[in-house]
Amino acid sequence: MTEALTKAGLAEKLYEELGFNKREAKEIVEYFFEEIRNALENSEQVKLSGFGNFDLRDKSPRPGRNPKTGEEIPISARRVVTFKPGQKLKARVEEDAGSEQQ
């Protein structure tokens, strides 16, 4: 099992491949995710062509239950983020990942 890609791994890539200094690389990675969070927080859909879209969905309140006690607790209305992978990413994952994981 390999380690997951993190912000540090992405910054390392920018430093190695594009020659940004380490501080710049770290800042770009930080702002990349922060600007996506800002957009979603401001009710904007985020469309990154080739990779995918981050959409917002509003969920109605619904009755819920504490799985441990069985007690009924209402689940309030909420807004959630969903990710819809783009065609290009889906195709790459279907072609490559399947063969490697089997």
Binding site: L5, G9, R92, V93, E95, D96
Partner: peptide, 10 residues
């Protein structure tokens, strides 16, 4: 890089 990582199953 993110697409490559996912395509490798990571």
């Amino acid at each position: 890089t993110m697409s490559d990582v996912l395509a490798r199953g990571e």
